[in-house]
Design a protein around this nucleic acid. Structure first.
Lengths: 180, 180
DNA sequence: TGGGTCATGTAACCTGTTACATGATTAG
DNA sequence: CTAATCATGTAACAGGTTACATGACCCA
């Protein structure tokens, strides 16, 4: 249930339309949570049914009319409950399409596996570079006991995660190319 | 589409029932792909419609009757196509419930965040330990240019991945506890 | 003898993906 | 002038999760 709560989190900062939320996602949470637009609209509908958000229709002339959502009291409470929830099972899910391929890679030529890993590593480097640049743009910040910079911990995670992936790909490639 | 292909991969080694496949999953692919039983049954149905597998009903007395699936020619071909497919976008998906919480953690007490991270790290250590033990049981193996031990690369990945998570959690905890 | 677990699966629901629709504005 | 992109969204389908069903056998 992280997408709903991500949306609640964003709405707790500012009211927004589905379109806005989708943009906000790409600019922030997208590093660690890829959501697509249509999903956001559906979640908003459900959240409104559930009373976590309220919407107001805004008529526009130059652009299509929009529906702006704001968080309710119940929604804020739900956000807090979720944040404070101590269950960790939902946090341990792992699912890697890459490893699924590698596991069965014995069925294809080693050269093809090597090509795949090289392409994968290059893409990781590219993604990592993008994050680094965007973090640099946000630039200087100071944290304190009153306001730790949590977003910074998430970008650190992503950068280190890509380092791990790049390292693993490199090690695996060198094993594969050294095999006798 | 990794689950279907994981099932195909397993069936390319041996015919099996949905129940068997679910067991096989937990013993191997589960490290990096959590699948649940009911999903496997549904995928098998669809794969049979699509002609990737064929099933045969086996009558049993002591146990419920079962349906044993085997891979078809078309299924084997599909497995190879998927393995050789050079697209990497599907491999780059990232989605972390943990980071979703951390991103919005400013809304709750720092002490609660610290508790969460400690529990998370402990669980990572536990999972990692389990994998290490299971790998040790599989034990000695030798690889060669003819048969690289791809499964070994996947378990290495998981072990290193947990190392990364543990390191990140530790670093984040020390930042959080040192804040003035 | 009552509660687990083995061995099979089905049903309902929730979440994620892909494709499409529409009218304005901007860039080449 | 045409194609892309902005700013809104809807619809259909695929994949993942949770809960339940059934009859045998095994353990305390």
């Amino acid at each position: 249930m992280s997408l709903k709560h991500g949306i609640l989190g964003l709405l707790s900062l500012n009211s927004a339309s589905g379109y806005d939320l989708s943009k906000l996602f790409s600019e922030s949470l997208n590093y660690f949570w890829m959501a697509n637009q249509s999903q956001i609209y559906r979640e908003l509908d459900k959240m409104e049914e559930g009373g976590w958000v309220l919407s107001e229709k805004i008529e526009q002339s130059a652009r299509p009319n929009k529906r702006v959502y704001r968080i309710t009291q119940a929604g804020s409470q739900e956000l807090l409950n979720w944040l404070k929830d101590e269950g960790i099972d939902q946090l341990m899910v792992i699912r890697s399409p890459l490893l699924m391929k590698i596991f069965f890679a014995g069925k294809i030529d080693r050269a093809d596996v090597i090509k795949l890993l090289i392409a994968y590593r290059a893409e990781c480097e590219k993604q990592q570079q993008t994050i680094k640049e965007e973090v640099a743009q946000i630039g200087y910040f100071e944290e304190s006991a009153q306001k730790p910079a949590y977003w910074k911990y998430t970008t650190n995670y992503c950068i280190e995660y890509y380092n791990f992936l790049i390292r693993w790909a490199t090690d695996t490639l060198s094993s594969l190319t050294n095999l006798k």
